[in-house]
Design a protein around this nucleic acid. Structure first.
Length: 264
DNA sequence: ATGGTGGGCTACCCA
């Protein structure tokens, strides 16, 4: 079973890239973030043509938006939690049956948090911290087995998840308050699949800013995208992959796709 | 210390 996560930064604009990607890799399930499309305009027929007949999506105009594309049928459990009291389309989950077992898959798009790393001065940063606190509480109250959690969590937790640890300690996405909160959230019952397969001090990045003349040469990346598995699935983990080459395709997203391979 | 680019869409927007 292969599961992909990708912040696609506009699903409609990058449908051709997704098509190319899926011609080479055939994950059973794909989780996308920043689809930036409202549900009435969701390109469902195009995705079904690509072989992903089972779809769920939660989108809005211009911002955010998440979806899951699957070759396997699934259910959408009733889940009425409004994160931080908002309807801003940052989470979707499914339940699917595979080899006579049931699994849950969560797809998250955590708020980026703005520029100023101070919750008193910057409401976006406050929202980001509150969002993670709420998620942590929810997973504490609802301990998970047979669960996979993926998405753009907008935090690079470890020293070797950024191009320069010291220089980024006061930059949103790598401040100690965020990295501690992210690890606390993960410790509600999850294992970091990417870092289980690729150990520090090897650097891993999944995002490179658009604001560099040459992203590859400057290589100022961060690992903002994550693949977590509940601890009981750890023995089933096979491999992870970071599709760095996609950052060099024409009109790329600033994030690259990542996949998890697991023997469910 | 600053500003750089890109997406959606016309907002002192978002990333």
């Amino acid at each position: 079973m292969k599961i992909m996560s990708w912040n696609i930064n506009s699903l409609r604009l990058r449908l051709p890239l997704l098509t190319t990607l899926l011609a080479r890799n055939r994950p059973e399930i794909i989780c996308l973030q920043e689809t930036k499309v409202q549900d009435t305009l969701f390109p469902g027929n195009d995705l079904k043509t690509l072989g992903y007949k089972h779809l769920c999506y939660k989108g809005m105009k211009s911002y955010n938006g998440v979806c899951i594309l699957s070759t396997l049928p699934f259910e959408i459990p009733s889940f009425n939690h409004r994160w931080c009291g908002k309807d801003d389309c940052r989470h979707i989950m499914i339940r699917f049956e595979y080899q006579k077992n049931y699994f849950h898959l969560h797809n998250f798009y955590v708020p980026a948090g703005g520029d100023v790393p101070d919750p008193q001065l910057n409401p976006k940063f406050k929202h980001k911290l509150n969002f993670i606190d709420e998620a942590t509480e929810w997973f504490k109250l609802n301990p998970q087995e047979n669960t996979i959690l993926v998405g753009d969590l907008n935090i690079a937790p470890l020293e070797h998840d950024v191009w320069n640890h010291k220089q980024l300690l006061n930059v949103v996405s790598h401040t100690p308050i965020e990295t501690n909160k992210l690890l606390n959230w993960m410790n509600t019952g999850f294992t970091d699949a990417v870092r289980t397969c690729i150990l520090p001090p090897e650097k891993i990045y999944t995002w490179w800013s658009y604001r560099n003349r040459d992203w590859e040469k400057s290589n100022r990346g961060r690992r903002l995208d994550h693949l977590w598995i509940s601890n009981n699935l750890k023995p089933s983990l096979k491999a992870v992959e970071i599709y760095k080459e996609v950052r060099n395709w024409e009109r790329p997203s600033d994030h690259v796709p990542i996949t998890l391979e697991i023997d469910l």
